[in-house]
Amino acid sequence: MLKSKYIIPVLFLLMQAMIFGFRQPAQLHTIHTGNAGEIKDFFKYTPDRLPFVSAHRGGPRKGFPENCIATFENTLSHCPATLEIDPRFTKDGKIVLMHDPNLERTTNGTGRVVDHTLAELKKLRLKDTEGNLTNFTIPTLDEALEWAKGKTILVIDAKDVPIDVRAGKVVEHKAEGSAIIIAYSIEDIQKCYKVSKDIVMEVMAAKPEQIAELDKCGVPWENMIGFVSHDMPQDKNMFSEIHKRGAMCILGSSRNIDRQFMNGKITAAELEAGYLNLVRQGADVIEADLGIESGAALSSLQQAASSKAKYFRK
């Protein structure tokens, strides 16, 4: 017979097993940049870089909603990836992850996100990409920043949260090594750099004139990676110009080959070939809606010897 002091711990373990099942957590493919120096080195362009995926909205799919921590873990269980996320304010000034200003598409709630308190939003459940209700709830930016440490790099978009507030959250959580911020203007780049010189930013770099503005904005290129476009740029020199400055290039696939595949216009083989072509054209990072599929396509490229290999772990 168990002694009384062991009964409560055993019952607790049994309850956990009943709820979650007797299973080991999924093995994650991680990107491990522990501090600002490492994240800057990780995003520094080198000819031996290992192309990887930035999973748009965290990589949602059937059973896994967008902007959801369970979805982040599902993506990382298949491939290493950075995770693009969307912050929005609540009525009581907290920040949650939600792409749309309204709740209907992605939750069982109604109305605007900003018209609900965090406590009210936490009672809602998230929908997956097919509109099916799941048991997952809306995470806060605070929760995501803490979760990401040692696992991946969050790419924090804007939505209705100003860049100085987003930067402040990164500093508050000491997450300079596990989060970067999207900046859409020179003014925002300068604001973020003023908050912290350690934060890396994803900046808009689709045209030569944008490169020229970035050169003279007062922020070093080690703090920037260039988002080139959602489509192949007319000027292919954009990739080499960004690389010359020591920065990586991001190219989006969500509005082209991802959409074509989801609409049945191209095959899985053509999708894979499309991802590899983006890398051949000069992309270092592919921002994809289909995070797992793009990760699988790039897996063969990640086997090469590289100075970046130390950051990719299981």
Score class of each variant (00 low, 15 high):
M1E: 04
K5S: 10
L13D: 14
Q16S: 11
Q16F: 04
F22E: 08
R23S: 08
Q27K: 14
G34P: 05
E38Q: 12
D41E: 04
D41F: 03
F43A: 02
R49S: 13
P60V: 07
P60D: 10
R61I: 08
R61E: 13
F64G: 11
N67V: 03
C68S: 14
I69S: 01
F72M: 06
E73H: 02
N74A: 02
L76M: 12
S77K: 10
A81Q: 14
T82G: 00
I85Q: 09
D86Q: 05
F89C: 10
F89L: 14
G93A: 14
I95M: 04
D100G: 07
P101E: 15
N102F: 14
L103D: 01
E104N: 09
T110K: 15
V113H: 12
D115T: 12
H116C: 03
A119K: 15
E120R: 10
K123P: 03
L124A: 11
T129C: 04
L133W: 00
T137Y: 00
E143S: 12
G150K: 04
K151F: 00
K151I: 01
D164K: 15
G168P: 00
K174R: 14
G177T: 09
S178T: 03
A179I: 04
Y184I: 09
C192G: 06
M204R: 07
A212M: 13
C217G: 13
G218F: 08
I225K: 05
G226S: 10
F227M: 11
D231L: 15
Q234D: 13
S240N: 13
E241M: 14
G246Y: 10
M248C: 13
D258C: 07
N263A: 07
A268E: 10
E272I: 07
E272Y: 11
G274W: 07
Y275G: 05
Q281L: 04
V285E: 03
D289T: 12
I292F: 01
A304E: 08
A304V: 13
S306R: 01
K310C: 05
